[in-house]
Design a protein around this nucleic acid. Structure first.
Length: 701
DNA sequence: CTTAGGG
DNA sequence: CCCTAAG
């Protein structure tokens, strides 16, 4: 499950081959390392190709116009040598003959054979587009490339040049066995772009075999699933529908049974094997172009590896952040076909825009840009004016007694949760969602002379993050049984926060009578007597619940491996400044209990404020002391009455003195010790929480 | 789990 | 507010 792991954990997935004993010298080690880097790159690409293959296999009809790239996107043909035993990687020189595309050996092995072309360009190093055209016989139909794109013959290769189908191949039965197809050295460049473009094109093609034995165990689950599920791997739109390989979805267009999917993956692995061999040929001149293409990826890969390694040395705190990012990224790219391509891999963001399925700024066109370019060549433009985006539906539940301010905040949280996450664009035509990203506008029915009124765009939260169906304990929301908890990936701290609150199965923290209740009721509105008076009546209030919901179909199609490590996605809690009343309660509690019994302080004064932990209280006390010591001009946030700050200083001084004098000698009975400073304070109860009258600062010093 | 303290 | 060490 090498690929599987890779998909889930980013770069962890690459399984470095054991270093040969002969490679222990520094020089050979370096060489080995280089080869390994390339192999890693190959591995990445391979995974994409494999995914694409599966996709195309499932959807031969939707083949495509993905080849309609920008000018810079060109094709280079490269043949692969599968002949080489894998162990000969270091010193082997490719002996692949240069061939024109006409002569390009037909790579089909059997009905399961595939060839994939990864279109890259040295001018857009980070981008590549995997294309394959498979006919009903599972043979490559490269002619689709030209026929579909309608390339201008004057500037582009003729259709015949790309014709590589079952009948034109060489070898047994009109096919080449992949193992016999020389690869690696002979690279013939063919440009789809401007012939005068100085950027040399690059392409890496892969051959595959359907021989599956020995590969099944390493089949990437997600690749399988995407293939099996008729989910275009590189299509984001459908990525959100991936359901994991355990739930193959047979659709009408799914010409293959799940079992076959495994076979396909076998192809993938074979591809991997072959591709690795190619990648391990470092020397050949003709590889330089590919190397050029790869180098960046390799470099970045190395960087990421490095990052991964160095992560071991960074503090746990940052490591966690790293993991968060990492997970986030991997989730994004898991859904882009199981390939882990960190956006950070792309030093040039602009160059990344074409990686299909890659998450990117919705405003940055990628494949569409290429298609757009093509369209421009053809001469048809579709002019769109997007007046507004439809925002996903939000479900918000607030108690009737909630303030407008809290309502606003809740709505804001919900909106932020959606907008703050990675967004995708959904396209609707005639009210129907257009899911096939590979279709052209023309094919979809969007053309310049058509009515475009029926065309709509919608903002879609990241599928992995868009299901924060956060239900409070008291919420009637039954989303819990709809999707497993692991799929609940709140997309913003706000929602997380709601979620955390929802964990409290006791009384709703915010509305329970206690210090916390009034503190929490609404930060936007100043605490008022009315607020405090209704404490008891608010016990049955439900928590503010933010529910973001999507369609059932989308709920059902979230694939499992997207967020494998949700537990590690520890979101920072939302910041909740202490109100003056809270400070008051805290000060009072500390006055009674001292500064070393934060748990007691919590239980005493903030027991019902679930969001205030004793660590929070301790921290707040710390900052209060600090605040009290600095000049009022330096203080920030809601001003704390000087009287309170004075008490803070007094209490702090007192308890500090007590601690140094007689550590841990305080007992509940000794709580009155502080009463020396008070006048008329009965201190009948130890906790201000119980004696609410204490809340009113009527202490006298 | 709590406490204490640095970040 | 987070993180972690220490008890």
């Amino acid at each position: 499950m090498v690929l599987q792991k890779r998909i889930e954990y980013g770069f962890n997935g690459y399984q470095a081959p054991a270093m040969p004993r002969a490679s222990r010298s520094v020089r050979r080690r370096a060489k080995f390392q280089r080869a390994e880097d390339k192999q890693k790159c190959a591995f990445d690409l391979l995974a994409t190709v494999a995914g694409k293959l599966l996709q195309e296999r499932e959807n031969p009809a939707i083949s495509s116009d993905t080849s309609s790239n920008k000018d810079q996107c060109r094709f280079v043909k490269d043949c692969h040598d599968a002949n080489k035993p894998s162990k000969s990687e270091l010193s082997d020189e490719g002996n692949c003959d240069k061939k024109s595309l006409n002569e390009f050996p037909h790579p089909a092995i059997d009905d399961h054979a595939k060839i994939a072309s990864i279109v890259t360009s040295s001018s857009c190093l980070e981008r590549f587009i995997a294309n394959t055209w498979v006919d009903d016989n599972s043979h490559i139909k490269m002619e689709n490339v030209t026929s579909e794109v309608k390339l201008d013959p004057s500037g582009y290769p003729k259709e015949s040049q790309f014709k590589i189908d079952g009948n034109t191949g060489k070898g047994k039965d009109g096919m080449h066995e992949l193992e016999k197809v020389p690869i690696g050295s002979g690279i013939e460049m063919y440009s789809f772009g401007d012939p005068l473009d100085e950027n040399p094109p690059a392409l890496i093609s892969l051959g595959g075999s359907a021989k599956l034995s020995g590969y099944k165990d390493r089949i990437p689950c997600s690749l399988l699933s995407k293939g099996c599920n008729n989910v275009p791997v590189v299509s984001r739109d459908d990525d959100e529908n991936s359901s994991g390989c355990t739930h193959p979805i047979n659709t009408k267009t799914n010409a293959f049974r799940p079992k076959d999917c495994i076979d396909d993956s076998g192809i993938s692995k074979r591809l991997a094997s072959n591709f690795q061999k190619v990648a391990r040929k470092p020397k050949h001149d003709t590889l330089s172009n590919r190397d050029g293409v790869w180098r960046k990826t390799c470099h970045n890969q190395r960087k990421c590896n490095k990052r991964q390694i160095s992560q071991m040395n960074i503090p746990f705190k940052k490591r966690k952040l790293f993991n968060y990012k990492s997970v986030s990224n991997s989730s994004g790219f898991t859904r882009s076909g199981g390939i882990y391509y960190s956006p950070k891999n792309c030093s040039n963001p602009d160059a990344c825009d074409s990686l299909p399925g890659m998450h990117r700024d919705p405003g940055i066109p990628s494949l569409e840009a290429c298609q757009h370019q093509m369209l421009r060549r053809i001469g048809s433009h579709v002019k769109l004016r997007i007046k507004s985006f439809r925002v996903p539906e939000l479900f918000i539940e607030v108690p009737e007694t909630a303030t407008i301010g809290s309502l606003k905040r809740t709505v804001m949280d919900a909106v932020t949760a959606v907008l703050g996450s990675e967004l995708h664009i959904g396209v609707f035509l005639q009210g129907k969602k257009v899911r096939d990203d590979s279709k052209t506008l023309l094919q979809t029915g969007i053309s310049h002379h058509n009515q475009l009124d029926a065309l709509g765009f919608t903002l879609e939260p990241n599928s992995s993050q868009s299901l924060p169906i956060v239900c409070a304990a008291h919420s009637p929301c039954s989303g819990a049984d709809v999707t497993p908890p692991v799929l609940r990936c709140p997309s913003s701290p706000a929602v997380i926060h709601q979620s955390i609150q929802g964990n409290s199965d006791t009384l709703p923290e915010d509305q329970v009578a206690s210090f916390g209740s009034q503190f929490e009721s609404d930060n936007d509105s100043a605490p008022s007597p009315a607020n405090t008076s209704v404490d008891k009546g608010m016990e049955d209030f439900k928590e503010l619940v933010t529910v973001l919901e999507k369609g059932k179909e989308e709920l059902a199609m979230v694939s499992v491996p997207q967020k494998p490590r949700r537990s590690e996605m520890v979101q920072r809690r939302i910041r909740r400044p202490f109100s003056v009343d809270e400070v008051e309660a805290l000060v009072q509690a500390v006055e009674k209990l001292g500064t070393g019994r934060w748990r007691d302080v919590k239980l005493c004064a903030f027991d019902n404020a679930k969001h205030r932990t004793y660590v929070d209280l301790k921290d707040k006390w710390k900052t209060l002391v600090h605040t009290a010591r600095i000049s009022p001009q330096q203080r920030r946030g809601e001003p704390v009455p000087q009287e309170l700050l004075d008490r803070v200083l007094v209490a702090h001084a007192y308890w500090s003195h007590q601690q140094t004098k007689q550590p841990q000698k305080q007992h509940p009975e000794t709580e009155t010790v502080f009463s020396f400073n008070r006048k008329g304070q009965g201190l009948s109860s130890a906790c201000g929480q119980v004696d609410e009258s204490v809340l009113v600062s009527d202490f006298c010093y």
